[in-house]
Design a protein around this nucleic acid. Structure first.
Length: 575
RNA sequence: GGUCGGUUCGUCUAACGGUUAGGACACAAGAUUUUCAUUCUUGUAAUAGGAGUUCGAUUCUCCUACCGACUACCA
């Protein structure tokens, strides 16, 4: 009978979860969902030395932000500030969490019996060498350009239950506490292994060392023992983990064999590493700081040093974009489609299409992914994201409709919604005529300043005379601009559609207004045979402070007639 | 040093042993436009090197080079 698919993500709470870890979690999640199985979260905190407070909560929050929520291993405990469920690691057994606790430090009493079972079966032994003694041996060997490893040969010369008498062994176990249980790697055997991504591999056991399985000093297992025991107990069917574990795969095979669990041994898949964008080696925390992109999903403050690491969330990435880019870093669907939601990835994900080689992370592509999701957002969603920034910068509230129309206009000019303010601030604030000539930066006053180069280039007497003439035209003309009044909007649209029945009639109120404004201005400019670029750019300079950016009719539409006049007057006076 | 893994445009990648080696990001050029951006079109750019197997190799084998992981009483 086929077993239920059960996979796990088993991070160690030694710091924030890095994006490579999130990718591993993602692939596990996709695999589980595709097979109608379970995705389990387990915390491997068997190293009390390296425990970092807050890391576990960070892992939970990061997974939740990505939408990769475990099926097993967590329980809801209240709600977060934003109303989403607040998850913590499950400590009590329940129907949903039959294997609780899911934190290995809380499973501590479990492991010793398994280690001793191996000793009794002859697959492991007690070792009494101190860490200092072994370090010294390593140092000596290194001095002779050799490598010391605890293995089938050297174990015969070391202090352990294989070389000491039974009485001495028992005395040391009961009277000292810095001994360990080591796995006894068999001599000169070939371990044949299979990896779902890499295929067949084999290794000779003589190249392996006798790994520590359990430590008397802290009564805790090492990774290898805890991992195998828990994967067995939790009935894990596939182990999908990082390639850094590949060298310990033979040991893990041997452990399953020694325990007699070969028939239920999980299948293994080792994911290639995420590499630094420039040089060599795997992507590390420092690369992000150095190259200017986040390495972590969420912002992290080191509790000891207060050092801050930026996160994708805080940098303005959508979780969907982050998940998408991670999914395609080391995997591809075999088609040319590149944009996927988490849901869409589930049916098409496949371990056979996971790439064997390491993937270098590329920030530009990451931004592109975010841009794609930004463009797929509705105006209402974007307006909601933008509203707080507008309120903060302007000190006032703008209508939902105003913000939506602004967002629709500018969404194709941005990679992130956090860029919206810079792109559109001229629609909210005037350039400050007084401040322009000095070009002094005034960070405390959020107003645009005229760009001096542009002033030099466009504020010629000729251009100013033309703009002055346009000012008069604007003053004596009537033209519709933005309004929240729905009656005015529908009335205008109705008269426009009856006036001209052809198919190219503008379809929205804004489009209609902008075309009227444009007709007014360009009609006049063309009639006068002025240079369009010169006049329009001078206008733009007066409106926004520089000559690049939004269209003139769009700006007038949003700021209205009165403000249009004020800005032109201010510009003519100042430049 | 040893063990294991990897190597296709700058980057992410596609290609049952038979393709003008494809796509995307980035870059460049052109078109559109009142500027910028968008959009559209086009372009530059790769099988690490060497043997072998084969009618034919990016694809299979071996060697070399390079890159990486691991080599803790860390995970």
């Amino acid at each position: 009978m086929a077993r239920e698919t059960r996979v796990r993500f088993a991070p160690s709470p030694t710091g924030p979860l890095h994006m490579g870890g999130v990718r591993t979690a993602l692939y596990n999640y996709l695999f589980a969902k595709q097979n109608n199985g379970k995705f389990i979260l387990r915390i491997e905190d068997t190293d009390s030395q390296r425990f970092v407070p807050g890391a576990e909560a960070y892992i939970l929050e990061a997974l939740q932000w990505c939408g990769i929520v475990p099926d097993e291993g967590i329980v809801q405990q209240g709600v977060n500030e934003d109303g989403t469920p607040h998850y913590v690691l499950a400590e009590e057994k329940s129907e949903k969490n039959p294997h609780a606790p899911y934190r290995q430090s809380q499973r501590k009493p479990l492991y010793r019996q398994y280690a001793e079972e191996l000793v009794n079966k002859g697959f492991a032994y007690y070792a009494f060498d101190s860490a200092e003694e072994l370090n010294q041996k390593r140092a000596e060997a290194e001095a002779n350009k050799q490598t010391f490893i605890y293995n089938y040969e050297s174990r015969k010369q070391l202090r352990n239950s294989l070389t000491l008498s039974k009485e001495e062994t028992e005395r040391l176990i009961s009277t000292t506490n810095n001994w360990t249980i080591r796995f006894k790697i068999p001599e000169n055997e070939t371990v044949k292994m299979n990896d779902l991504i890499r295929g067949e591999m084999e290794v000779n056991t003589n190249t392996l060392d006798d790994k520590v399985l359990w430590k008397a000093a802290d009564q805790l297992p090492t990774y290898h023992l805890a991992n195998i025991v828990d994967d067995h107990l939790m009935e894990i069917t596939e182990v999908i983990r990082g390639a850094e574990w590949l060298p310990s795969l033979p040991l893990h095979y041997l452990l399953y064999k020694a325990f007699g669990w070969e028939d239920t041994m999980p299948r293994f898949a080792h994911l290639s590493l995420l590499l630094k964008p420039d040089g060599k080696g795997k992507l590390s925390k420092r690369d992000g700081d150095r190259l200017g992109f986040p390495v972590f999903p969420l912002k992290w403050v080191n509790p000891e040093t207060q050092e801050v690491s930026r996160g994708y969330r805080e940098d303005g990435y959508y979780p969907e974009a982050f998940v998408n880019l991670l999914a395609l870093l080391g995997w591809n669907p075999g088609t040319e489609q590149e944009i996927f939601t988490l849901e869409e990835l589930i049916p098409i994900f496949s371990l056979d299409r996971v790439i064997k080689s390491g993937a270098k992370f590329n920030v530009e592509k990451a931004k592109w992914f975010n841009e794609q999701f930004l463009r797929r957002r509705t105006a209402a969603q974007l307006a909601q994201e933008f509203a707080p920034a507008v309120k903060e910068k302007t000190g006032r509230e703008y209508s939902q409709l105003f913000l939506e129309e602004v967002c629709t206009l500018i969404k194709e000019r941005a990679h992130f919604s956090t860029e919206f303010w810079d792109i559109s601030k001229a629609l909210f604030l005037c350039p400050d005529g007084a401040a322009q000539v000095t070009a002094a930066a005034q960070p405390e006053t959020p107003v645009a300043v005229y760009n001096l180069d542009d002033v030099k280039k466009f504020c010629t007497e000729e251009n100013k005379a033309h703009v002055a003439e346009l000012l008069s035209l604007i003053k004596e003309s009537t033209f519709p601009t933005f309004t929240d009044n729905q009656n005015d909007r529908t009335t205008l649209l109705a008269t426009a559609s009856t006036a001209s029945a052809n198919a190219t009639t503008p379809v929205t109120y804004k489009e209609l207004c902008c075309s009227k404004i444009e007709e007014l201005l360009t009609g006049y400019i063309k009639a006068k045979e002025w240079k369009m670029g010169q006049v329009m750019n001078t206008l733009r300079l007066f409106f926004t402070g520089n000559t690049r950016g939004l269209g003139i009719s769009d700006i007038i539409y949003f700021i209205g007639k009165e403000c249009t006049i004020k800005r032109i007057e201010a510009g003519l006076k100042a430049c």
